[in-house]
């Protein structure tokens, strides 16, 4: 059994109805990374949705900017126990990107520059629940936080909000991505504390 360390408090941890179980609130924005930070130029950047049977939809940076933009203010919850309230993002709703995508598949694999992957049910990307964001706090999204563009799926743990996102592939069955292969939950609902296998 662990013995308490006299006088050690660690990071300040608060109880708050807006905090999912096992989380603490932080004002900082910790940088989490499982590998080297990819450096992707906007001129080279593309985003693809692969709907299967060769049906691929692709956007360049300019094409993304030409789509309707939304401002999103939301709480985010990282599985490493920190939460950050009221983060402000700007980007394109996934509803907009999926508008012309036809598929009977219910599952998706999100892919990133650098090779990262994470699986998300298609239903969790639609109906105003997910965005492809490229600004944070009014500034272009820094590479450390996933720039040029990252996914934002704030109702799931933040590892699902893939940084440096490059595309989404539709799948007929639910397969695990990177963290889902390495001990973390397939779905990742912070309010049910769905952290691990």
């Amino acid at each position: 059994m662990a013995i308490p360390t006299s006088g050690f408090a660690g990071r300040r941890r608060t109880r708050d109805v807006n905090l999912p179980p096992g989380q603490y609130a932080t004002d900082s924005f910790p940088v989490m990374s499982a590998g080297p930070t990819p450096r992707v130029l906007r001129a080279d950047w593309t985003f693809q949705i692969a709907a299967g049977q060769g049906r691929t939809h692709q956007w360049t940076w300019e094409q993304l900017q030409a789509l309707p933009q939304e401002d999103v203010t939301t709480d985010i919850h990282c599985v490493t126990h920190w939460s950050k309230f009221g983060t402000a993002w700007r980007g394109v709703s996934l509803d907009t990107l999926f508008e012309d995508v036809e598929s009977g598949s219910d599952h998706t694999m999100v892919h990133s520059y650098g090779g990262y992957t994470t699986n998300i049910p298609l239903g969790d990307l639609l109906d105003g629940k997910a965005w492809l964001v490229h600004e944070f706090d009014g500034e272009p999204l820094a590479a450390a936080h996933g720039g040029p563009a990252r996914l934002l799926v704030p109702h799931l743990y933040l590892w699902k909000s893939a940084k440096w996102v490059s595309g989404i592939r539709l799948m007929d069955q639910d397969l695990p991505g990177f963290w889902e292969t390495n001990g973390y939950a397939m779905y990742g609902d912070p309010w049910r504390e769905d952290r691990y296998w």
Partner: peptide
Amino acid sequence: LRLTAEDGYQA
């Protein structure tokens, strides 16, 4: 080193 706060939080 492992430090444990009163509420069980560990680092």
